[in-house]
């Protein structure tokens, strides 16, 4: 078996490819996070809304998304959805980076569904009396949420959200299926051009582990620094 070629990973074309793959993976995760969090808060609020119709909408969203694999979501948004768009929009998309756009959309909807459930649990962990206290002071539903419940729910919710961020980081790998040039895609590309599968996948494995470690460490730090304090 040919020996492990470290030089491959340190400079040269393959190194550049792998590094750009890592960069795209990180970008994908970051963009998704930015869009998914607000969406998740919205869906969580829908699920606990006093209006039955809104509650049903939230539940339908969460169940509909979570019971379909991410790969199928990606296939839909890349191969299926553009057809539904008007011609002009479609042209604009194809001119730009449609792969990345589809991936971000698919990942956002997918991740938001899971995060919404964690946020909902966090809100439910806050005793009902807190909500009643807010209403008693004269705040409506939304302002009570914003000023009283959500700030408290945040502390309980951050650890599971960090868990979801970890899942998101790993899920970016599936975007390779629609041709996004993220890390898996690049690792496979390096393998097929150089047959250096061990080096390429060692790089990818280490990169995933390293970022996973950072995210997990962040969770541990948060838990240590901001422990949940009950009344």
């Amino acid at each position: 078996m040919p020996s492990f070629d470290f030089a491959l990973l340190q400079h040269g074309q393959y190194h550049d490819w792998l590094l750009s793959g890592l960069w795209v993976s990180l970008l994908l995760a970051a963009l998704t996070l930015v869009f998914a969090l607000p969406l998740a808060v919205l869906v969580a609020l829908l699920r606990i809304s006093p209006l039955a119709l809104l509650r049903w909408l939230g539940a339908a969203y969460v169940e509909g998304i979570r019971n379909v694999p991410l790969l199928a979501h990606l296939l839909f948004w890349y191969f299926g959805a553009p057809e539904l768009l008007p011609e002009a929009a479609r042209q604009w998309l194809y001119a730009g980076n449609i792969e990345l756009a589809s991936a971000v959309v698919a990942l956002t909807f997918y991740t938001a569904a899971y995060m919404a459930e964690d946020i909902r649990s966090g809100i439910r962990a806050i005793p009902l009396v807190q909500f009643e206290a807010g209403r008693a002071l004269g705040f409506g539903f939304l302002p009570t949420m914003r000023r009283v419940i959500l700030p408290q729910a945040l502390r309980v919710t951050v650890p599971p959200l960090i868990s979801q961020a970890l899942n998101l980081w790993k899920n970016t790998s599936v975007a390779t299926v629609i041709g996004v040039a993220e890390m898996m895609y690049q690792a496979a590309k390096v393998e097929s051009t150089s047959f250096r599968s061990v080096e390429a996948f060692a790089f990818a494995t280490s990169a995933y582990l390293a970022v996973s470690l950072v995210i997990t460490g962040l969770g541990a730090w948060y838990h240590h620094r901001y422990p949940v304090r009950t009344a």
Partner: peptide, 26 residues
């Protein structure tokens, strides 16, 4: 995906059906 390459212009339908299948099962 194979079915999609054969019918070609109906990607949305094909993948919606795929999603629906997974949904019902899961």
């Amino acid at each position: 995906a194979q079915i999609n390459t054969q019918v070609f212009t109906r990607g949305a339908e094909v993948y919606l059906l795929l999603g629906l299948t997974y949904f019902v099962l899961c």
